[in-house]
Amino acid sequence: MNHEFSIESRQFNLWYGDFQALFDIDIGIRQGIITALIGPSGCGKTTLLRSVNRINERLGYVRTEGLMKVMQKNILDSDVELAQLRKQVGMVFQRPNPLPLSIRDNILFAHKLHTQSHEKLSRQDENNLVENVLRQVLLWDSVKERLHQKAIDLSLEEQQKLCIARLLPVKPSILLMDEPCSALDPKGTEAVEELLWELRGQYTILIVTHNMAQARRVSDESIFMLMGKLMEHAPTDQMFVTPACKETADYIEGRYG
């Protein structure tokens, strides 16, 4: 196995009940870069994304087959602790979903989940941690005066940045993003894309997007999916200029989708 891959799958199949959503997916997501998942609605890109931290299983009627490796460990093994997996693989959702807590408590939520009571941080250390991650997501200056206010009261853009920020204290290696900008206005989208570039290199980022221009702007590599199958995986520049498959070319040019 290649160690430069953060996420790697072999013959990965997934069923929702009787419906097969993913067919024999083989991917290798390289460490530290941004990979975009593109494809028409219902092609399985979100399903694939949600398989990486196994959040799909909440539904209760999901069945998988094959191999899905995250940091060289097959996460479908029975000895995998979901809490540990999800500590390593953070996820950002389509709609910003801060918890109904204060901004500060949102940031510390995951951190508190994953620390035992004896290694609790002092209040000063917590404050430093909060400041540190909020600076990383370029949010510190706008919220530093209101850390104890409800996170729900922030603007959508700020909420989405907060949702990214709250993943960072537990030091994940992978960030999954499911159309993180689809609920934001163009200005918010720009701000979040800027943030993605800031985070690039420190984290392996896998992002689902419907927006071709966004995929082109933010990603190093792109994966095109269609009808639950992986059609093409190539560097973004190459895919958008000289796509290998006819379907990719058609989709990128907007002939369907």
Binding site: I55, R58, F93, N97, A110, H114, R166
Partner: peptide, 27 residues
């Protein structure tokens, strides 16, 4: 309680009990 709160907490690695006590009950 909106399901996205639960989803958010689970995606951060909360167990069922942590989810109930730290998110669902306060909300």
């Amino acid at each position: 309680v909106p399901d996205r709160y639960r989803e958010a907490a689970e995606a951060m690695g909360a167990t069922r009990w942590q989810l109930v006590f730290k998110v669902v009950l306060p909300a």
